[in-house]
Each structure stands twice: as structure tokens, then as C-alpha cells.
Amino acid sequence: MMTLSNTVYATGEGTPLVLVHAFPVDHRMWDDCAEQIARQARETGDPSVTVWAPDMPGAGTGPIPEPADSGRVAADGALTDALDLMADAYVDLVRAAGYDKAVWAGLSMGGYVVLDIQRRHPDMVAGLALCDTKAGADGPEARANRLACASECEATQTVKPVMHFADATPSDSSFKQSDEGRALFARWIGEQTPQGVGWRQRMAAGRPDLSDQLPLVTAPAAVLCGDKDPFSPRPAMRALADAMTGTSPSFTVIEDCGHFSAVEHPDQVASALLDLVRRVHLRD
């Protein structure tokens, strides 16, 4: 059984908001956004909200599962059951705290988790936010690249193969190009473990195509992306929102923003997530 290390940012009323982080960082990418959610809720007179951000297995303080708890291993080394087992662990965490539903917000790899929760536990979805992510599985080249990265991290016992996530190009956002932004991501990535990075890459490589889940979402939903996101560009995120025909998702494009929107513009992401929480409460 997978064990998740959970960070509780705020304890309030009603359905919890569970923030699911991106790769190759951990829950800390939500720090400023969670603070903004609490502040904006106070300023607008909303009831205080419960905000969590668990670490994925192998991220931050999240323990790496034993092989028996990671499920089947494909011939190429991808973990074909791991996303499902992790989605179950997130749901178990919420249920163990006495809740029967949560509002799930996932950024990038976190979006894979949220969509898999929708697939496996639709009754647990009170609301759903997809930030800078995608629904499809990796193609053959992307899958091979993930597995090569995992093998290199494990063989060299370094996280150097993923340090490029801290780099910036001339087309990146102002934050990503800043000394502050580069230093922050370099620190977060440098504090991950090679084994944890490898596990998450193998999990993501083995995940299924979740595109068929988009029209099955009936809960209030939100879709967010940065206008300079190189991995989940605006047209792809617009198409993702349009595919959610069972609900009416809000669609937010954040200007001068790359892939890690909750880090780059935490106030705007917080505003969109708080709006989603309000819509969930109105529905309840």
C-alpha cells in the first residue's frame, strides 16, 4: 500500500481542496498559491477552506513504494499500475480524514493523478481543476525518453537529467527567466532523490490515455494554463476544456506565464481555484 506525506495548509469548512504537484518538484510548489487562497478567502468573506498538498511517492518527503506496492512492470521498465495505485492512495487519504469527496487540482503530472481519480473514483470528485497538463498518454518517443531519464538518474545517483526544468529560454516567462525563478527551481529539484525522480518517470511512462475521461466529468471544473507554456500550450488546453462536455469548465489563460503557473502567478491560480471551490459549495 502506498503512503503519502501530506501537508495541511489550512483547515476550514466543507469539502477539502487537494492540490497535486508537478514533476520534478514536490508540494512546495503550492506554498504561495495556498497562502493566496487563504488570504483571498478571508478578504472576500468566504468560509475558510481546507487546503492540502500531499507529496507524491518519491517526491519531497514522500516515501518510495516497495516494488510490490508499485504494481506491474512492463518489459521496458514502465510501471503500468502505479498511477492507479497512487490515485487510490490520494482517495484513501481523503476518506481516512472523514470526507466523502474533495476538490482536486492537479498541475502537469498532478493533472494525470486528478484525471485518474476521475476514472477510478468519480464519486470522490466534488470539483476538478486541470492546470498546464494533458490527458493523453506518452507516445513511443516520450515514453522512451522518460524511461531513459529514470535509468540515468538511478544509475548515476543524481538528479542532473531533470535539472533542465530549472533552465529558461528567451521565450519563457519573466519569472522563469529571472535569477529568482531559476534558483528556486534548481533548489527544489536538487533536493529530490534520484530514486524518487526515477519512480515518478516510470509511473508517468506507464500511465494510460485518459482522454476518454474528459467528457465524463460532471462536477464543476476549471482549466488553467500559462500563455507561454511550452508543454501544455493554450490551443491544447482549450481543446482539453472543450472536450469536457459534461460540465462547463472555466478557462483561464495567465499572461507572461510558463508551465508552472501556480509558482509563477500564484495569485491568479488561487483566484481561479477559489472560484471553483465557490461553485462546488453553491452546487452542494
Rank of each mutant, 00 (worst) to 15 (best):
S174G: 13
A68L: 02
S248F: 14
A142L: 14
L79F: 09
D69C: 00
K176F: 14
V269R: 09
M86T: 09
E66R: 08
A144P: 07
T50S: 13
A241T: 06
Q40T: 11
F23C: 09
M124G: 07
F165R: 00
D167N: 04
G206C: 08
G246L: 03
P208T: 07
R95S: 08
A168M: 05
P249I: 02
D138A: 02
Q192E: 07
D212W: 15
E154W: 13
G190H: 14
A96V: 01
A135V: 03
L210T: 02
D284V: 02
V125G: 02
R143S: 06
D275V: 01
V8M: 05
T193H: 12
D92T: 01
V73F: 10
I254P: 01
S151F: 09
A150R: 04
Q118S: 09
V253R: 10
H27S: 13
E154R: 15
L240W: 11
M163C: 06
S248Q: 15
R234L: 12
D69N: 04
A129H: 04
M86N: 07
D92W: 00
D84V: 03
M2K: 03
G196E: 04
V113M: 05
T156G: 05
L282T: 12
P54R: 03
T169M: 12
R182K: 14
I189P: 01
P57R: 00
A102D: 02
D227Q: 09
W52M: 04
A97C: 06
C33R: 12
M109F: 08
I37S: 01
A68V: 05
E66Y: 05
V25C: 13
M29N: 09
L85H: 06
F175A: 01
A142Q: 14
A186G: 09
H265A: 07
G139E: 11
L85V: 01
P215T: 03
D46S: 10
V253Y: 13
K101Q: 15
A126Y: 10
Y90M: 11
V162K: 01
A236Y: 12
L83H: 06
E66P: 00
A38N: 10
T245S: 15
V25K: 10
R28C: 08
V280D: 02
L107S: 13
E255R: 15
N6H: 10
M29P: 04
Q201V: 04
H281G: 05
D267K: 13
S271Y: 12
L4Q: 05
S173L: 07
D256Q: 10
S250Q: 11
L115W: 13
P65E: 13
D179P: 00
G12I: 02
A150S: 06
R146S: 06
G226D: 09
